[in-house]
Design a protein around this nucleic acid. Structure first.
Lengths: 395, 395
DNA sequence: CGAATTTGTTGCGCTTGACGGCAAATCGCC
DNA sequence: GGCGATTTGCCGTCAAGCGCAACAAATTCG
């Protein structure tokens, strides 16, 4: 009496999905709140929740002691034993984590690599780490249920089949990453561009919570990537390559601001140039930000202002075209923004349509390092969330 | 046994909407084809079609004589008597049309104006014309059913309440156009930016049919406007101001290409500059195109090439960010494209990500002058299409 | 003119969610 | 500490809507 869709399209499935999505996004909720949030009937919610519990996707816990009149309502929470494996291969290390459906990171491991890893090595590494975790019962993955693997790759990823078209820093080209990982682990895999997944994470859990139209721009060591959320859904484009703001030709009003003739946005607005001007070779983001604050050098201020101007123009262009309610800046772009938020906003306001700027909120990313892992896990969970029983017990 | 939703969310409504949308977009279809297209059961389609016919939204016609075996299937077509009023106020005239749910334009009238019309005058004019049409029974509007009014305005429009924030050429500012028109006509009204509505029209009936991710750019006398379709849905942004490509700061690689320091895209890529270089004061699009072809002047070729370079960069930027499957150019941008399509494509390819360009199709708008009217009608029909019984016979 | 094919038509059954009455659990007040 | 108020869970019933299958109708082909 659980699965069979019965009716054609699956109202039932959609309702299950809605419920699971709610507890996934909003955290544990009482059944009463779920009833209000979904607009469904009490009895329906009860039956749906029971079904999700049967599927092992949620837990029904004792009611929270809320000081209110009336019979307490049991709390529905995402089952902590439902996990996705999130993977982020980078130049110097591969980070692997197990992320719960409840949004918590159960385990995380950063595997440093001497040389740049290949796609095959990455797949093997994931397999190895996951098997080790599974073996170590006390680590908490003993009886866990692994749903899928999500990979955040710094490069161009074709969403449809998980082919990494080009990841310059990893020196990957046309790597069938999804297939490799699926074969190695036996789990379904999803591959996405790191910045796009970061955008999803910020949208769902970070600075963009509850916002349906946003632009996310992340400044990393290797350049500027981004992601869009439109109508509450991530924008991939046909190939899934959308969001490559870093490759845009920047509009530069003051000719003196140009540093890289014929260059793209990430040649002009660049972490490297900031590091150079403060005199650092390598630094993490807080160090860079601290160094910028510490120095009183006018050269630093000038470079900061120059990059801010160009960034402002790029943001203004995006705002004109997309009219988002929020623009989120991450990485060193957040550092630039935080040095003088008003100046950046003024720069955007001066060049974008006033009407679009009125409703615009310029924010700094709220999630830290975990962003990519959470985004990757989200990609891994996507199928399950969209259809909780879909490919489950297919006899 | 027809209306009552019964169940909560309205599968029924969605199915009705799906059916109506199909015959609206694809034209008359046999019931058998509808069955295949929707995936619903024969009996269900029959019942839904009968319900739509009862609502007066579709007609069930005699089967088409198709030379195939089997019992012929009746043809379902959008009812020709269901009309939307489409309005396009411009500087020198207001165009008003009655557009059928079947996509045909039943009547059209262009009212030339001596001076620029005000929003109030526009509303009054619409009322007057509609009443006249209604009176003239033989003109075909005798027993027609007017669903709503859609207005395509050359300016910034706040979609939520139909407020025209700014329409520089009409000299409108903060005009509550939707309210004015609704009061004057007694019909629900929808207001949209002309380019955005053009994008919708091209998406549904023109060069973008069946394409779910596209960018549309239109070059008019007053500048460059555009619209986006993402995930098959028009992108409005929070305020509905999205698509203002013309206000972007262009990326210009060759310093000599700049004509308007500090200017925006539509200052550099401009119809006026083309007219000037071929030596025309006023001309419609075919005349301009002919004049460009006729002249052998290198100055014309140079200007064309310059605008093409800058346009190419702008398109490349859009392609990088949105990775659309199609970019559609209308107005004088189409003229620029058609003079040398390969050159434009090369310009885009040189500056956009190769992967995104691979799947990119650069097209010229397919719909003519009717584009705005069709788009406006579409906006007017939107509610009806989304929910065919929704606000209909509310007792 | 009959076989084959396709599709409309009709009646039935199933799934699923809504609804309403009743019981349970908590709070507040006396 | 008991009682009313309130909220919510639980269960049985009901209805809406779609799928399904059998039959009938309309057309083509041989």
């Amino acid at each position: 009496m659980t699965d069979r869709p019965g009716t054609f399209d699956g109202v039932h499935r959609r309702n299950l999905s809605k419920l699971l999505g709610l507890v996934h996004l909003e955290g544990p909720m009482s059944r009463a709140r779920l009833t209000a949030a979904t607009g469904l009937n009490r009895s329906t919610v009860a039956s749906l929740a029971a079904e999700l519990a049967d599927l092992g996707l949620v837990e029904e816990r004792a009611p929270d002691p809320t000081n209110r009149v009336g019979r307490p309502s049991p709390v529905i929470a995402a089952h902590p034993g439902v996990l996705a494996i999130a993977v982020n291969p980078e130049v110097d290390a591969v980070t692997i984590a197990a992320v719960g459906l409840d949004g918590t990171i159960a385990v995380r491991e950063r595997v440093e690599t001497d040389e740049v890893v290949s796609p095959e090595q990455t797949a093997a590494l994931v397999r190895e780490v996951v098997e080790r975790w599974r073996g170590a019962g006390d680590a908490g993955l003993g009886d866990a249920r692994l749903v899928a693997v999500g990979l955040a790759v710094p490069g161009l990823v074709r969403a449809s089949d998980g082919l990494v078209r080009l990841a310059p820093h990893l020196e990957w080209a046309d790597a069938p990453l999804r297939a490799l990982v699926e074969e190695a682990t036996g789990l379904p895999a999803a591959v996405g561009n790191d910045a796009s997944l970061g955008a999803i994470a910020e949208h769902l859990f970070g600075a963009g919570r509850g916002v349906d139209d946003l632009v996310y721009l992340n400044g990393g060591a290797s350049g500027i990537g981004g992601g869009l959320i439109v109508h509450g859904r991530p924008v991939g484009g046909v190939g899934g390559y959308a969001g490559e703001f870093g490759q845009n030709r920047p509009g530069i009003d003051a000719p003196g601001d140009r540093r890289a003739p014929g260059g793209v946005l990430e040649d002009e607005v660049s972490r490297r140039r900031l590091l150079d001007v403060v005199g650092l070779r390598l630094a993490d983001e807080p160090t860079l930000a601290a160094a910028i604050v510490a120095t009183g050098s006018p050269a630093v201020a000038d470079e900061l202002a120059r990059q801010r101007r160009i960034l402002g123009t790029a943001l203004a262009n995006a705002v004109n075209v997309l009219n988002p309610s929020v623009v989120i800046l991450g990485g060193f772009l957040a550092t630039i923004a935080e040095q003088d938020p008003d100046a950046l906003r003024d720069a955007v306001a001066a060049q974008a349509m006033p009407a679009a700027v009125e409703e615009l909120d310029l924010r700094v990313a709220a999630l830290g390092e975990d962003r990519l892992l959470i985004g990757a896990a989200e990609a891994a969970f996507a199928d399950l969330l969209a259809d909780p029983i879909g490919d489950g017990p297919v006899a």
